[in-house]
Nucleic acid binder design. Structure first.
Length: 437
DNA sequence: TCTGGGGTCCTAGGACCC
DNA sequence: TCTGGGGTCCTAGGACCC
């Protein structure tokens, strides 16, 4: 059953996990001092709470709550649209600070990092807790952000530590005390164990993280797959997950999906949504100099069931013109008339680097080169004048809706962007691109 | 958490080959 | 043609994460 042996590091590790507190809201408070001490919420563009400051959380505001309900709970809340660009800048600076302490920093997500501290006590002349505390202080004074930190023998334990006390917590879990942190922790709260596996374990009387950690190895090996065997070791203080330092440069897949309200039965509209997703996914792929060999298309119905198709492409590409054929084919396979759809999505998979795309004997190389030139120009214009200054005619039916949303009180900034692009396009006399190759 | 959007990794099972 | 053993590659789908 288990084919690959696990690699367990024999030397005890000191792994730190850092998690920013209410990250998006905290960034807003860091930039706008007048918001400090006030309940701040981001997620205006989605209509649900993406992040809530601790002042808002104290009033009962939780992630995912509808903004209309927030107003009842907390009428004085400051509700802002999420500004990912700004948050990313904070994120970059946070990682820079961490790298002053150790070269082994894993940027796990926009607001989380793992740091390998093993062996650093000597150079810092103090215990690991002290190093962690210094990091925390530096981030606070330089960026105005509060973070919670956990330090232990493995990534899974460090994560439990950083969650143990929030906000502004610092939890050190040495080997002898592991059991204290696991005994009251439901097994489903452990990083990597979801509701499904938790339910399975419950059937065998395993409900806490400690019970799981103390379960006989035979049971673990016979009844659970590799990821859970790894977690089991990590919980027992044996590190199997390394801190991955290299920044992620390449993707396995690129996907774009969008929900629209209200749901629609209109074939042309639904297809236009799909087409727009395809354009966005292709833009991202071209930015990373990647090309897809497989295309997945899916439609989500109102009842949240999906129907989807995967297609193999005759040659790796990130050019929508080449993909509209397969897209249409996939769409017609999945689409059922008179059905309400709420979301469409595409996935570009089997990504290879642009340089690797070779022409086959049957390709019309002149045509492909022409296409490459056209898209280079499209990408350049988009960079200058805004995304979707130029778009494919197939995506047109979504444009009307976008303007409508803008008018309905989308964030002023987005609306401005939308119209700025529009004006420039008109001034330049650029038509919506209709590519014929 | 009756439901955003973007990802990763693992496994079972079929197809195909010697 | 049948039987058996063994390997590799690929894909669908599950589970989980932020």
């Amino acid at each position: 059953m288990n084919t690959q042996p696990l690699t367990i590091r024999s030397w005890p590790q000191a792994i730190l996990h850092l998690d920013a507190d209410a990250f998006f809201a905290s960034c807003e408070q860091a930039i706008h001092p007048e918001l400090r001490g006030r309940p701040v919420i981001t997620g205006k563009e989605r209509g649900i709470v993406a992040a809530a400051s601790y002042e808002a959380k104290a009033r009962g505001v939780q992630r995912g709550v509808r903004l209309s309900d927030v107003k009842k709970l907390c009428p004085d809340a400051v509700i802002l649209p999420s500004d990912y660009e700004t948050y990313s800048l904070f994120s970059v600076r946070m990682f820079e600070i961490l790298r002053r302490f150790s070269p082994d920093v894993e940027e796990y997500s926009i607001d989380e990092a793992f740091v390998d501290l093993t062996g650093l006590r000597r150079s810092f002349h103090g215990p690991y807790e002290m190093i962690a505390e210094k990091m925390q202080k530096t981030i606070e004074t330089e960026l105005g952000l509060s973070v919670s930190v956990g330090v232990s023998l493995s990534k899974v334990l460090a994560k439990i530590g950083s969650k143990h006390r929030k906000p502004h917590g610092l939890t050190f879990i040495p080997g002898r005390e592991i059991h204290r942190y696991l005994q009251d922790l439901p097994v489903g709260k452990v990083w990597g164990i979801g509701p499904n596996t938790a339910a399975f374990l419950n059937k065998f009387g395993i409900t806490t993280a400690l019970e799981f950690a103390r379960t006989d190895e035979k049971f673990i090996e016979q009844r659970l797959s590799k990821p859970y065997q790894e977690i089991w070791h990590e919980l027992n203080g044996r590190s199997v997950y390394p801190v991955v330092t290299e920044s992620k440069s390449s993707y396995q897949s690129i996907s774009k999906a969008k929900t629209f309200t209200p749901p629609s039965t209109d074939e042309a509209f639904v297809f236009a949504q799909l087409s727009k997703n395809l354009e966005n996914a292709c833009i991202k792929a071209r930015r990373h100099k990647l090309a897809a060999t497989r295309l997945m298309v899916f439609l989500r119905k109102q009842d949240f069931t999906d129907s989807g198709v995967e297609l193999k492409l005759s040659r790796p590409t990130a050019y929508p013109v080449e993909l509209f054929g397969p897209l249409r084919e996939g769409f017609h396979n999945a689409y059922e008339p008179r059905t309400l759809y709420r979301q469409t999505g595409v996935v570009l998979a089997g990504l290879v680097s642009e340089a690797e795309t070779q022409y086959s004997l049957f390709d019309d190389t002149a045509k492909i080169e022409r296409m490459a030139r056209i898209y280079d120009a499209v990408d350049q214009i988009s960079r200058q004048f805004g995304k979707h200054t130029i778009q494919h005619a197939a995506s047109l039916p979504t444009k009307l809706q976008a303007q409508h949303e803008g008018a309905r009180g989308d964030t002023p900034k987005r609306t401005a962007e939308l119209f700025r692009g529009e004006n420039k396009r008109q001034k330049l006399g650029l038509p919506l691109l209709h590519i014929k190759v």
